Simulated scan of single mutants.
Amino acid sequence: MNVHEAISKHSTAQHLHLVRFAELDEQREQAIEACLDLCRRGLSFNVDEINAITAEIIAHAKKGISPLRSYVTEDMVREYVNNK
């Protein structure tokens, strides 16, 4: 493999890694919005789905260049809703 092919292969791998991160991050944002909506309406909610996706993001980040995300607690959701 020549240098140009190696660079191209590396660039493609990084791009695909970031595309997957963006997909996971969007799923996480949707899960957060769903929890916020339930909390605003005074309904029961949990952060299990958010944190499952967060775990996927963290595992994915270990294989590439994408950023990490933090786990979310129910208190964090309540605090956010109460401060808005």
Rank of each mutant, 00 (worst) to 15 (best):
A31E: 09
L24M: 00
D37W: 12
T73R: 03
R40W: 07
A59R: 01
V19W: 01
D75A: 07
K63Y: 00
T73E: 04
Q27A: 09
Q27R: 15
V19K: 06
I50S: 04
E49K: 07
V47H: 00
R28A: 10
E79N: 12
L43R: 14
E33Y: 11
H15F: 11
A31H: 03
A31T: 10
S66P: 01
K84D: 11
N2D: 12
Q27E: 15
M76T: 12
Q14G: 05
I58Q: 00
E79L: 14
F21P: 00
T54N: 07
H10V: 09
K9H: 15
T54C: 08
L18K: 06
T73D: 05
R41N: 08
I65N: 00
C39M: 04
M1D: 15
H15Q: 12
T12E: 09
R20L: 06
A22H: 00
A13V: 03
K63G: 01
L68P: 01
A55W: 02
I65Y: 04
K84H: 14
D37P: 13
H4L: 11
S66A: 14
P67F: 03
E79C: 12
K9W: 10
E5Y: 03
R69T: 04
E74L: 02
H15Y: 14
N83I: 13
E23M: 15
R78C: 06
R41T: 06
Y80N: 08
I7R: 03
E26W: 12
D75V: 14
N51Y: 05
S70I: 03
V72E: 03
L18I: 04
L43Y: 12
I53A: 04
I32R: 10
K9F: 15
A61S: 07
S11A: 14
V72M: 05
E56V: 02
T54A: 11
T54S: 08
E56T: 04
M1L: 15
I7M: 05
N2S: 14
C35W: 04
L16H: 10
H17T: 01
L43W: 11
E5M: 07
D48Q: 12
N51I: 05
Y71S: 11
E26R: 12
S8R: 06
I50W: 00
D48A: 13
H17S: 04
K9Q: 15
D25N: 15
A61L: 01
F21G: 01
D48L: 11
E23V: 14
H60S: 00
H15W: 09
L16A: 08
H17L: 03
A22G: 01
T12M: 05
K84T: 13
E23C: 10
R40F: 08
E26P: 07
E74V: 06
R69D: 04
I50T: 03
V77H: 03
F45I: 09
C39T: 06
E56W: 02
A13Y: 08
I65Q: 02
M1K: 12
S66Y: 01
V77T: 07
A59P: 00
P67S: 01
M1R: 12
E29G: 09
N83W: 12
R41A: 10
V19D: 03
R78G: 07
A52P: 12
S8I: 05
R69W: 03
H10A: 14
